[in-house]
Design a protein around this nucleic acid. Structure first.
Length: 554
RNA sequence: AGACCCAUGGUGUAAUUGGCAACACAACAGAUUUUGGUUCUGUCGUUCAAGGUUCGAGUCCUUGUGGGUCUACCA
């Protein structure tokens, strides 16, 4: 193993490169991803996951997965399982077993005792309201609690009895003894432990006191020997407390580094708001393809690789960022263009009859599965006298000379089949086209075209007799505003997009019927689609992942 | 009100740590194309402002301006 000199791609890596150069922690790099198991992971978590795992990987380090489960009221094992599978789906495997902050409850308790013995923590009998009042205000110093100067012995006794369950919820807390006039409000004697007579999803009834974030997170980092504890910017103020506790407790000095969390246009990532969307029935669940959750994006057909690339391409900074959907979709198309096989499906079908083609004849035509990759091979397509084409591909009268789709007297190529000449259409009383009539050039067959006819346009089509019905769910962003949360005067719910989901029945080529759940395809000239879990062989269901780019005007 | 953080093209990130501002996305134009997709080529910028240090500042200093975070027994 050589020790390559890595170049730093962002400010976190700069710190690491410097630490490595200084031989800090013997060159060991250890990060962690610490979700609270009270909801599903979303695109913002994906960013944090990618940063933690990729940073460690780059420097030959490791990454732990730790459930930050210090609040028994909100956490569930169900979420733990989903978090694990989402991370694995994204393509990452953590070091060893999944860790839990709750595994350290006894150790944390001992650390609290140590703090008490050092005279740096005290049991406070003030009410929550009183503690809030003592806190002071921004720019206004707080006041000491009347219980602040108890002896270490008394505090130890009280804290031990808190643990033993002698006191009711809310009657007492353990507080760090720091400085009630500190400019950082978090250091004004923060609460470290609270009493909660509640069962925990892992420790059951073992505990009735639970540590708060500030007395669990950093300590868990130290216990696990985390060298670089990467978190989002809103924890900046907690770093002062994080470091104060490291010094007071004399524990392994993990270093907290904050980066800006990522926002993406048209997505919201507030767990509470996401939960509300589900409870109100505005989406179908955590994995609704319109959700910002990993589960939702997966169901929508976003490849893990695309999400990873997106997270890496957007960089790591200390500056609030609002990413465009364009960039996310670019990354999705980039992967799918390379990997997805091309199939034909007509989303808004209209019948087209090739009047000079023999009735009852079916011809099998060869077509390539993926023009980007010949190794994907070819398949056979049934072709016949009656086919479906896209209603949008026909114009009664073309509006400009750059139009090269179907219109009376126009020639177009049917993908992998023949060139046809359009003779006209039939319509109903309202003027709606009910059938398009064409003739074909028998010597223009794809691959052996000797017709000499030039057709500028190429259309996708499906044999009418062989077509299968597909339920296709067309998605648009859930909101009509890119930042629905950023309106002080309006609730984000007002920006819900009424057209975020449209169900249509499309006509697909028969091979689509056997597609497996999760498999992605390009529906030629339309976009990328993936098979939804609701799909059955009798009723295939596809989700629109993302449309193809198009420079077509008109 | 105090403390802390941030400021580069329409968007997001770079700039060998003071040395002629780069990459990607988007947009626009053109070439190729049996997907109006893909691919390829081209076009679009003096770094929030004002001072200062310096031969030289996006980078350092000062003062502003604008934005963000913080007063849960949540994480």
């Amino acid at each position: 193993m050589s020790s390559p000199t890595h170049t730093a791609d962002n400010f976190i890596e700069e710190i690491i490169v410097e630490d490595l150069a200084n031989g800090k922690h013997g060159g060991r790099i250890h990060t962690r991803f610490p979700p609270e198991p009270n909801g599903y992971l979303h695109i913002g978590h994906a960013k944090a996951i990618v940063i933690n795992f990729e940073t460690a990987r780059k420097f030959g380090g490791r990454t732990n997965l730790r459930m930050d489960d210090t609040n028994p009221s909100t956490e569930e094992t169900l979420f733990v399982e989903n978090i694990q599978s989402d991370i694995r789906w994204l393509g990452y495997e953590w070091e060893g077993e999944t860790r839990y902050a709750s595994d350290y409850f006894e150790e944390l308790y001992q650390l609290a005792l140590k703090l008490i013995d050092k005279g740096l923590a005290y049991v406070d009998e003030s009410t929550a309201a009183e503690i809030e009042a003592q806190k002071g205000d921004i720019g206004v110093p707080g006041k000491n609690s009347p219980f602040r100067d108890r002896s270490a012995e008394e505090n130890r006794d009280l804290f031990t009895r808190m643990r033993a369950g002698e006191f009711p919820d809310g009657s007492r807390v353990l507080r760090a003894k720091i400085d009630m006039a500190h400019p950082n409000l978090l250091l004004r004697d923060p609460v470290l432990y609270r009493i909660k007579h509640e069962a925990h999803h892992r420790t059951g009834e073992d505990w009735c006191i639970y540590p708060l974030y500030d007395f669990a997170h950093g300590q868990s980092d130290s216990i696990e020997g985390i060298t670089h504890s990467l978190c989002s910017l809103e924890f900046r103020h907690h770093r002062d407390l994080y470091n104060w506790l490291i010094e007071a407790l004399e524990i392994f000095p993990s270093r907290q580094i904050e980066f800006a969390r990522m926002n993406v246009d048209y997505f919201i990532t507030s767990k509470r708001k996401l939960k509300m969307l589900i409870e109100e029935g505005l989406v179908t669940g955590w994995d609704d393809p319109r959700m910002s959750t990993i589960a939702g994006l997966r169901r929508k057909g976003y490849p893990a690789e695309a999400i990873r690339n997106f997270c890496m391409h957007t960089g790591v900074t200390r500056r609030d960022s609002q990413q465009t959907l364009d960039l996310l979709e670019f990354n999705v198309r980039e992967v799918l263009n390379r990997d997805a096989d091309r199939y034909m499906a007509v989303l808004d079908p209209v019948k087209l009859v090739i009047t000079n083609y023999p009735e009852d004849q079916t011809e099998w035509l060869e077509t390539e599965n993926n023009p980007e990759d010949a190794s994907h091979g070819t398949r056979q397509l049934p072709f016949g006298r009656e086919i479906y084409v896209e209603r949008e591909d026909y114009r009664k009268e073309p509006q400009n000379r750059k139009y090269y789709r179907l219109a009376p007297d126009k020639d177009v190529r049917l993908k992998s089949a023949y060139i046809i000449h359009c003779d006209g259409h039939e319509e109903d009383a309202e003027g709606k086209v009910t059938q398009i009539n064409c003739t074909y050039y028998p010597d223009s067959r794809s691959g052996e075209d000797t017709s000499g006819v030039k057709a500028k346009g190429t259309l996708h089509w499906v044999s009418a007799s062989a077509a299968v019905d597909l339920e296709v769910r067309m998605y648009q962003p859930l909101f009509t505003d890119p930042t629905p949360m950023d309106h002080e005067d309006r609730d984000f719910i007002e920006f819900l997009n009424p057209d975020s989901l449209t169900m249509i029945t499309a006509k697909g080529e028969p091979a689509l019927q056997g597609a497996a759940v999760g498999e992605s395809f390009q529906f030629l000239r339309q976009g990328y689609f993936t098979v939804d879990p609701d799909s059955t062989p009798a009723r295939p269901v596809f989700n629109l992942t993302v449309g193809l780019k198009s420079s077509f005007r008109g």
